[in-house]
Nucleic acid binder design. Structure first.
Lengths: 193, 193
DNA sequence: GCAATATTATACTTTTTTCGTATATTTGTA
DNA sequence: TACAAATATACGAAAAAAGTATAATATTGC
């Protein structure tokens, strides 16, 4: 991988994170990366293409971590706890400014690309949950899709000030949330498996 | 003062603070302020004009606080301590993104405007220091201009990580700095006055 | 050191965005 | 109701950004 190329990716990510996509120009990315415009266009066909490649890396890394968790030999309950924390990290890492531009503007191309990526990931996750249900690691009478929804929903809970105010610190709240999660989805006894 | 007008000032300040001046468009300010473009141009002739009026308010408020301190009956030493804190606050309040655009870009008009404002303020401050020197509140053999330079210089010290690392917390460091300041400028004994 | 490859600077055209204004219409309000 | 203030829309002019062609220069592996 070219040094210039990765410099462009690094610089542009920083700029996008801070200012969003549409506020950053290609020329600005080039100047700050110490790269000429021609070199930029050698590596990326335009700004959208650049953003897509940033997304690819972002989601690629996340999926790598996800698979590392799912293929490890640990107990399913432990896996879900780790997934939840992974999701929290991912949510914190991605910039608000960056994400806003996907839905604010009329950049249909990027919107579609992001949605397809999300959909692809969800499909894998749901698939894993189906498998877990078949293995008796989750209640048989629960929809795997609902579990994924729950995971997303609970990540948002962490930002809710009303909920936060109930706990001395965030760690306690997260523990409470995950406990709630498991008492809901785990088989209540061995006999139910 | 029109409600729309102050809304524009408020919104634009927020946007400028976050993204800098050149990244924010007039149309964006209008949309976010819930104001039509025509209304904008009724109150401000262009973006520079708007920025100037934001600066006016900013520096007006700061000068108000300054004068409140200087005309109060407290001891001179106490005044300088308060000035130092005022300056720290002002430095923290003004956004880095906002100030950058004054010197980065080739917007000579704004650059000049800001410089003239700063110069005007300095003139007042230096004048007050001259008076203080004549009243024997500062050593006679010190240039008032140098005092102003020192004040600015010491504000920057607060950001120096090397200096910071010498103190358990910022408060201790600030105390140290102000103490240093006074042992340098105050008459060492009543007889020297 | 040479050849292949990558990068750059510059200058340029095209496209897009932003600016600023004119006009007709709507809204608020005294 | 009448008057002022604000708006929506549409528009041409100006500025900024995107993208390309070309020739020159660095870098790199061999």
């Amino acid at each position: 991988m070219s040094k210039k190329r990765s410099q462009i990716l690094k610089t542009s990510k920083e700029l996008f994170w801070k200012y969003g996509i549409k506020r950053v120009t290609i020329e600005e990315i080039c100047t700050r990366s110490g790269v000429s415009k021609m070199t930029f266009y050698k590596h990326f066909s335009n700004k959208n293409d650049l953003v897509k490649k940033i997304l690819d890396k972002l989601y690629g890394d996340a999926m790598g971590k996800y698979k590392a968790i799912m293929t490890s030999g640990i107990e399913f309950k432990e896996k879900v706890t780790m997934l939840y924390k992974l999701k929290l990290d991912a949510t914190n890492e991605i910039s608000h400014e960056f994400l806003n531009d996907f839905y604010d503007t009329d950049n249909e191309e990027l919107k579609d690309y992001l949605n397809s990526k999300i959909e692809y990931n969800i499909r894998i996750i749901i698939g894993d949950f189906f498998e877990a249900r078949n293995n008796g690691e989750i209640r048989k009478d629960i929809k795997p899709e609902f579990i994924n929804y729950l995971l997303n929903h609970m990540v948002k809970m962490v930002d809710d000030p009303t909920l936060n105010s109930l706990y001395p610190d965030a760690q306690d709240m997260i523990l409470e949330i995950t406990n709630f999660f498991f008492y809901g989805i785990l088989p209540r006894s061995e006999s139910e498996k």
